[in-house]
């Protein structure tokens, strides 16, 4: 299941990156130098960090709920 998702995502990616046309000025040099991956990496790290924080909070609330229901009984 997960593999399938990954492959579809990857193929989508390849399609999306395949086309190119150059008449309007874009940050093409940055892309060709590969520095864009640094930006992507930084953004992903922040995003993942925030999500992990959210997950931890979720688990903490679940634990609290459980404790509370135990005490009420």
């Amino acid at each position: 299941m997960k593999n399938k998702l990954l492959t579809t995502l990857l193929s989508l990616f390849i399609i999306l990156t395949a086309q190119a046309q150059a008449d309007v000025e874009m940050a093409d040099t940055m892309r060709s130098e590969g520095k864009i991956y640094v930006v992507v990496g930084i953004i992903l790290i922040i995003l993942i960090g925030l999500i992990v924080y959210l997950v931890l909070m979720d688990r903490k609330v679940s634990r609290l709920e459980k404790q509370l229901s135990d005490r009420q009984r």
Binding site: L9, L12, F13, L16, T17, A18, Q19, A20, Q21, A22, D23, V24, M26, I36, V39, V40, I43, L44, L47, I48, I51
Partner: peptide, 17 residues
């Protein structure tokens, strides 16, 4: 969100003035 934040930066977009 992970997909969006990668593809949003790497995928090709229309070139607009």
């Amino acid at each position: 969100l992970l997909y969006v934040h990668t593809a949003g930066l790497l995928a090709e977009v229309p070139r607009l003035n």
